[in-house]
Design a binder for these strands. Structure first.
Length: 553
RNA sequence: UGGCCUAUGGUGUAAUGGUAACACAGCAGAUUUUGGUUCUGUUAUUCUUGGUUCGAGUCCAGGUAGGCCAACCA
């Protein structure tokens, strides 16, 4: 296999590091905060971090960045682990920043002893004011000149619980006039008398991100610490801490996060959608979460393929959600079981067909290397899709119309003779005749029809519920929209068809299997299904060039 | 009125000083017992102004545009 796919900029750095001998192997990490569910943007990062380790023969740690007990929960830890595994990746070690609290505390003491950190009694408002602004340098306050001994004592007292939340903080002593705001004496520790999901009540002071992340990387000997662009201004601080502490020099590299059309990608906004019941939960099939996509019927393969195709770079991007849909169609076309389901039934009566039934074999998947077949019961009363019939058909319409002929998939060619209407003029049924010589597989009729319709035998039809999803937001670039993003929610993102008619084979469905409802789209069984009623989620529609054609007209 | 990052078809991503390419989307056609799939063809790209060079998407300088940074969040 000699595919010469070009390297992204991180792969180039790694190859150079390996070539130069800077590293003999690599170690990456995926560092989620357990305060929400993973989404497709995380999938990009997961595929990158784990993919790199697989490609270059290294490892990837799963490290929960759990330094803020107020927002973090075990439920999120569990969901994150499940999602990563489902995506198909295995971590080298499962770790927690909270595992390092004692070590991080010791690092802080080291900084204090070197005169590089101090306890500040100021309020958060005061600290913010003294910090200045991007265009205005900050000012140094009186606490900055405390002695090492005093700082040591105060910091120990902070840990001992002598102070209330917000009463004191530990800050690095760097440069209050630095052009980079993050270097203006950043906070290292704050007091939070809060229960932590792992350390319980052992601690009442917690390290900030900047004093936990880099050091955790270093403790684990992470060689390449890959994060998103907004952490670029943190890098000087990341390196400052490592240098002052004299610990293993992990290096941080930044790539552009994923943005997708018609989608929001921030945990804060996703949490809002869940809490305010705009969706049914984190795994609502309309959510861009991994669990939502999973429930919707997306496959790990298709998500990995998507992440591969979008690439890794440093410029802001807005990926067309259509690319994700392309990837899942591409995979599902290969693996999905074909089934016939009529969403909006129109009865047809085949007047010249006897009162018996026939069984027609039909392929489960025409793309499969080894074909399997199931049998469709055929009777004189069938359902077809209502919009597969038009009383007055336009040119190029090759479905059913008065006097027109179509093939019923895997069965006979039929001709529409009579349109039956109720007193209001609504079409209630069609009387048709079939061509006995046109039997599928042994057609001697010589008749060529352009259209093939899906159908179910009325007598054998199974009632199922079908949920059709559309994009959750109306605007292509939701983030660029003014005002509350929730004003942009698509009110028609879910359409439920309570009584669709399915072929009997669908009764043997299971949650793992993927289906293509012929001419309709790809579907999967939903966990809401009961013994009385099966529920199917539409993953994605089939490409519909006819719909496009009619839209143009 | 500071610092940092980034500018390549509609959307992404390549081209590593030497013919601007690939995918998705679009358009046109062929095949098709899914208006699916598959196949063929095709439209369309280097932000701008200078400079260096035999040669610049690539290097340098200025400009412009977009993004990020002033949470006791990560």
């Amino acid at each position: 296999m000699s595919e010469e796919k070009s390297l992204n900029f991180i792969e180039e750095i790694i190859e150079e590091d390996l070539r130069s001998g800077k590293h003999s192997s690599i170690l990456t990490r995926f560092p989620p905060e357990p305060n929400g569910y993973l989404h497709i943007g995380h999938a990009k990062s997961i595929c990158l971090n784990f993919g790199l380790a697989i490609k270059y023969g290294g490892g990837t740690n799963l490290r929960f960045d759990d330094t803020n007990p107020v927002t973090e929960e075990t439920e999120y830890v569990d969901s994150i682990k499940e999602d990563i595994k489902w995506l198909g990746f295995n971590w080298t070690k499962e770790l927690y920043a909270s595992d390092y609290f004692e070590q991080l505390f010791a690092y802080a003491v080291t900084l204090i002893k070197k005169g590089l950190a101090y306890v500040d009694d100021s309020s958060s408002e005061q600290i913010a004011a003294e910090k200045g602004s991007p265009t205005q340098p900050g000012i140094e306050n009186k606490f900055r000149s405390r002695t090492v001994e005093e700082n040591l004592q105060l910091f120990a007292d902070m840990r001992a619980g002598k102070y209330a939340d917000g009463e004191k903080v530990l800050r690095a002593k760097i440069d209050m006039s630095a052009p980079n705001m993050h270097m203006r004496d950043p906070l290292l520790y704050r007091i939070k008398h809060a229960h932590h999901h792992r350390t319980a009540n052992d601690w009442c002071i917690y390290p900030m991100y900047d004093f936990a992340h880099g050091q955790s990387d270093s403790i684990e000997n992470i060689t390449h610490s890959i994060c998103t662009l907004e952490f670029i201004p943190h890098r000087p601080l990341y390196e400052w801490c490592i240098e002052q502490l004299g610990i293993f020099p992990s290096r941080q590299y930044e790539f552009a996060r994923l943005n997708m059309t018609y989608t929001v990608m921030s945990k804060r906004k996703l949490l809002q959608l869940v809490n305010e019941n705009h969706v049914t939960g984190w795994d609502d099939p309309r959510m861009p979460t991994i669990s939502g996509l999973r429930r919707r019927g997306f496959t790990p393969e298709s998500i990995r393929e998507f992440c591969d195709r979008i690439g890794i770079a440093k410029r802001d991007n807005l990926i067309d959600v259509g690319l994700l849909e392309f990837c899942v169609r591409e995979h599902l076309n290969r693996v999905a079981q074909r089934r016939m389901v009529v969403f909006d039934p129109l009865k047809i009566i085949i007047t010249n067909y006897p009162d018996t039934e026939e069984l027609f074999p039909t392929e489960d998947n025409p793309e499969a290397a080894e074909k399997t077949y199931r049998h469709l019961p055929f009777t004189k009363e069938l359902f077809i899709e209502r919009d597969d019939f038009m009383e007055v058909a336009p040119k190029k319409y090759f479905r059913l119309a008065p006097g027109a002929m179509v093939r019923l998939k895997s069965a006979y060619i039929i001709k529409c003779d009579t349109v039956i209407k109720d007193e209001n003029g609504n079409v209630t049924a069609l009387e048709c005749t079939y061509i006995p010589e046109s039997k599928s597989g042994s057609d001697t009729s010589g008749i060529n029809v352009k259209g093939t319709l899906h159908w179910v035998s009325a007598k054998h039809a199974v009632n199922v519920e079908v949920r059709l999803y559309d994009r959750l937001f109306r605007s292509e670039n939701v983030a660029a929209e003014e005002g509350d993003f929730k004003d942009n929610i698509n009110p028609d993102s879910l359409q439920v068809i309570q009584n669709a008619y399915a072929e009997p084979a669908l009764l043997q469905s299971d949650l793992q299997e993927r289906y293509q409802f012929l001419r309709k789209g790809y579907f999967c069984l939903d966990k809401d299904s009961t013994a009385e009623k099966l529920v199917f989620n539409r993953t994605v529609t089939l490409k519909d060039t006819w719909a496009k054609e009619t839209r143009k007209a």
